[in-house]
Simulated assay, not measured.
Amino acid sequence: MMLAILIICSQITIPLPGVPLTLQTFAIGMIATMLPLRDCLLIIFTYLLIGSVGLPVFANFAGGLPILLSPLGGYLIGFLIYGLITSGILGLTSRSSLTICLANFLGAASQLIIGGLWLIPANHLTLSQAMTIGVIPFIIPGILKLFLVVIVAQRLLKARLLAR
């Protein structure tokens, strides 16, 4: 189900020059927050694998290995790091609002920086240009998605506890 949510969230896109703004990172945050590390990484790896073989699961119904080698590739590969950091931290701590927020902040920031750095060779940019184009415009939307992850995850975790 989480893989399907990731694929659907990938299609909710606000087109921007270079790298589109999607709800993929929201879905990655939810996956990393709600699932154990192994399951989290398995879902993200499966998403990247089925996208790389050509299934149109990436933003704007794109797919294929060329997408992973494009300027978008760093952001996509960064999803694994986001999941590793966030789910890893939450597997070792409680899932309080604060730890969910901090773990997702560290994961999302790492993913965004990896994506920005990938733009340097992919688009022949300087570090400053890559950060200006590939990181800074996504900070505020990323913070908003982070708070959305915390709110939704807390409600789902509470509902799961009540259902037991």
Rank of each mutant, 00 (worst) to 15 (best):
T13R: 14
S96F: 06
S96R: 06
S110K: 07
S52C: 09
L35E: 05
F105M: 15
L21A: 01
L162W: 15
C101P: 07
R38S: 10
G115L: 04
I143S: 04
C9N: 12
R160L: 10
L37H: 08
L41S: 08
L69P: 00
I28S: 02
L65K: 03
P137I: 00
L37Y: 07
M1E: 11
S97N: 14
I14Y: 07
L16H: 12
W118H: 07
L3P: 09
Y47N: 00
G142D: 04
I81G: 14
L90W: 07
C40N: 09
N60D: 12
I7M: 01
Q111K: 13
M30L: 12
T13A: 11
I151R: 14
A27L: 01
A122P: 04
L80R: 08
P66H: 02
M2V: 05
R164G: 13
L144K: 05
G51E: 05
V135C: 07
T93C: 13
Q111P: 11
K145E: 11
I113Q: 00
L112A: 08
H124T: 14
L68P: 02
T132P: 12
I14A: 06
P121M: 01
L42C: 14
I100W: 10
V19Q: 01
T46S: 15
R155F: 13
S87H: 10
L37F: 08
I151E: 14
D39V: 10
S52P: 01
L42V: 15
P66W: 01
H124Y: 10
A159N: 12
F147Y: 14
Q111N: 15
L48S: 01
L6P: 12
Q11C: 05
H124K: 11
A59W: 00
G116C: 03
V135M: 06
T22V: 02
V57Y: 03
L92F: 15
